[in-house]
Each structure stands twice: as C-alpha cells, then as structure tokens.
Amino acid sequence: MSIRTPLSSHRTGAVTAVALAAVVVLGACSNDSSDSDNAADGATTTPTEAALTGDAPDGSSSGSSGSDGDRCHTSDLDVSVGDPDGAAGSVYRQLIFTNSSDSDCTISGYPGVSLVAGGDTQVGAAADREDTPGEAPVITLSPGDAASADLKISNPGVYGDQCTATPADALKIYPPDEKDSTTVTVDGLTGCTGDDAPVTLRISRLQG
C-alpha cells in the first residue's frame, strides 16, 4: 500500500525553505552593506598620526596662508630707515622692509624697535605699539617690493627731569614674529634713560 503525503504538508515545507533562503540572502546583503558603509567612511577606526598631531603628513603646518612657511624672515629682508620728518617735540622715521630674496613672502603686524649705542647696548625702552583698530593687513612682498612702518621718536627734553638724554647711534629692528634683528646706523638719535624714564618710541604697524 502506498502512503500519500497531504498537499498542505508539501506547501508548508516549501514555504519554510523559501523563508530560510531569504534570511541567508538578507544577512549577506546586510554584511555587504556594512562593509560598503565603512569603505565610504574611510574605515578609519584608528586615527592616523596626522590626525593626532594636527599636522600634515610632511610635518608642515595645516593652517591657512600666511603660515611660517612663507613668512618674510629677517634674512629675506633689506631693512632701511628713511629721512627724518620733524614735528613739535618729536621726529618721525620710516622703517622700510624690502624683500631681497628670490621668492614671494608675507609680512604683517608691528616691528620691534629700540635705540642702541656702541653696537648693542640698548638706550631706553623699546618702542610701544601705536594703537590701530582692526586686524593688521597681511602684505605679500614679491622680490624687490617693500612695506613700511612709521617710528615716532619723542625728544627727551619734553619730559624734563623724568629723562636723562642719552645719545644712541643706531636702531635695532626686528621684523614681525622674528627673533633675529637688523641694526641700522642712524645719525642724531637721542634716547631717554633713568629709573622712571618714559617710553619715547612708538611704532605703527606695517603697510604696503
């Protein structure tokens, strides 16, 4: 005698097989999708050295233009001092920074300036900065181009007993953000010394 399996049992088995196959396919797709997402995100679960240090891979700064790499260094500049322009109780001298290198460089901000005598002996206090609103311009100097700043030198005599007038023979000048200076010989300089001596130098920021 043959035994016939009910049709409903065959249908149930077929449905179960189809359902299991669908689960397997969906699982595989899910894994593929996860891998694709990771690839699209760069799959960077471990930070690179550049990300940890904030530097570009070559070690240079990742900052914007005007960075240390293209700034005008003291060795790139020929610094000179213009003729005096007199005013009541003071004199003005223009400090001129000319790019003497073979490449463009940028310069911005205030130079550092002091009077010196006998080579490197400072006379009086270094220059105060002229208070100017707004951000200092970033000036790009091509080879041969120049930027300048105005130095106001007050006559020590206007301060009376606060000041001991002391001769100086040069200006010691630092370009902005530089540690190396240039010394320029200038005739007729007089500084102000003493325990309570006021600052007699005032420097403007650089302009192109």
Rank of each mutant, 00 (worst) to 15 (best):
T121Q: 12
T121I: 05
V123T: 05
V123Y: 04
V123M: 04
G124V: 04
G124I: 05
A126G: 14
A126S: 15
A127H: 06
A127Y: 12
A127T: 08
A127Q: 10
D128G: 07
R129C: 03
E130M: 14
E130G: 08
D131L: 13
D131P: 00
T132Y: 01
G134H: 07
E135V: 06
E135A: 15
A136Y: 04
A136P: 00
V138K: 14
V138Y: 06
I139A: 09
T140M: 03
L141G: 12
L141E: 14
P143D: 07
G144K: 12
A146K: 15
A146P: 10
A146Y: 15
S148M: 08
S148P: 00
L151A: 11
L151S: 10
K152H: 07
K152C: 03
S154H: 13
S154G: 04
S154A: 14
N155R: 09
N155V: 00
N155L: 03
N155G: 01
P156C: 02
P156Q: 02
P156H: 01
P156N: 02
V158G: 04
D161F: 05
Q162R: 13
Q162H: 01
Q162L: 11
C163T: 01
T164Y: 00
T164H: 01
A165Q: 09
T166F: 02
P167S: 10
A170W: 10
A170N: 08
A170H: 07
L171G: 03
L171V: 02
K172T: 03
K172F: 04
I173E: 08
P175W: 07
P175C: 08
P176Q: 09
P176L: 09
D177M: 13
D177W: 12
D177P: 00
E178P: 06
S181K: 14
V184L: 10
V186H: 09
V186A: 05
D187L: 01
G188F: 08
G188Q: 05
L189Q: 04
L189N: 08
L189T: 06
T190D: 07
T190H: 02
D195I: 00
D195C: 00
D195E: 14
D196C: 00
D196L: 02
